[in-house]
């Protein structure tokens, strides 16, 4: 494997966004790119990352390899990279280590690190293609704000989507709260628009602790997409350039 990223910031942000949710992960490398799929310890959430080969330049992967990496270790090493450094990942066939180099674009500084790999026996889940009943695309900062504000009151949030809009509601010991958003097009800045596409009304309840955690990815993209269907996991997607993505799936709360 040899994969060169123009900006180390992208990988730094991705790892930052998932390291509190998942610890030891396989980075599955093949000629289409680098993918990661991992459940959190309690098996409530699933992280699915895809960094397409087009996001790297150049990208070369002659044989499929799984790089088992501890994300705490990776974070320590990535801390040594500046955001605008050029980052290159390298691994040999049947590797013991993954090699990372950080090149400063404006000086002759080159740093090089090896991280020991782990043998990780991870369950792979098949994620079915789903036609979601409701898809909401909104500014990622807005979603972060909603989850943060409501998590101060309650452990869970009900998300209801109707043709009127989307409503986030919570009930806690001190009282209750809600935030409603309507479909809205911002003509001056499309990134601030709220788009809602709905085929049938949806109402689901989710743990806010996980949603707050997902929002650590907000720095990766101005926009976030929420996909919901009754009685299936919520998909929270942060799109990256070149069709790469960071997706989180969250199992709904049951009961009531």
């Amino acid at each position: 494997l040899e994969a060169r990223l123009e900006q180390a910031a992208m990988l730094k942000r991705v790892v930052d966004a998932i390291k509190d949710l998942v610890q030891d992960c396989n980075f599955d490398c093949n000629d289409s790119g680098i993918a990661l799929q991992a459940m959190d310890n309690s098996h409530v959430a699933l992280v699915s990352m895809m960094l397409k080969s087009e996001s790297f330049s150049p990208f070369r992967c002659d044989r499929n390899i799984a790089l088992g990496i501890n994300l705490t270790s990776l974070t320590k090493v990535l801390r040594a990279a500046q955001g605008d450094d050029i980052l290159t990942l390298k691994a040999e066939d049947a590797p013991d280590v993954v090699n990372l180099t950080f090149e400063s674009p404006e000086s002759d500084r080159l740093s090089e690190y090896d991280i020991k790999l782990m043998d990780i026996d991870q369950e792979h889940l098949g994620i079915p293609d789903t036609e979601y009943a409701a898809t909401i695309t909104l500014p990622s900062s807005e979603f972060s704000r909603i989850t943060r504000d409501l998590s101060a009151l309650s452990e869970s949030v009900a998300i209801e989507c109707t043709k009127e809009g989307v409503k986030f509601t919570c009930t806690g010991d001190i009282g209750n709260g809600s935030v409603s958003l309507r479909q809205h097009t911002n003509v001056e800045n499309d990134a601030k628009s709220v788009d809602i596409s709905l085929t049938e009304p949806v109402a689901l309840t989710f743990s806010l602790k996980y949603l707050v955690n997902f929002c650590k990815a907000a720095g990766l993209s101005d926009r976030v997409r929420l996909c919901l269907s009754n009685e299936v996991p919520l998909l929270v997607e942060y799109g990256l350039s070149n069709n790469s993505y960071l997706r989180f799936y969250l199992a709904p709360k049951i009961g009531d």
Binding site: S42, S207, A251
Partner: peptide
């Protein structure tokens, strides 16, 4: 976690 479904019940193991 009480009342919390598991993701593994929705997605099948490969």
């Amino acid at each position: 976690i009480e009342g919390q479904g598991s993701i593994a019940t929705f997605f099948e193991k490969k």
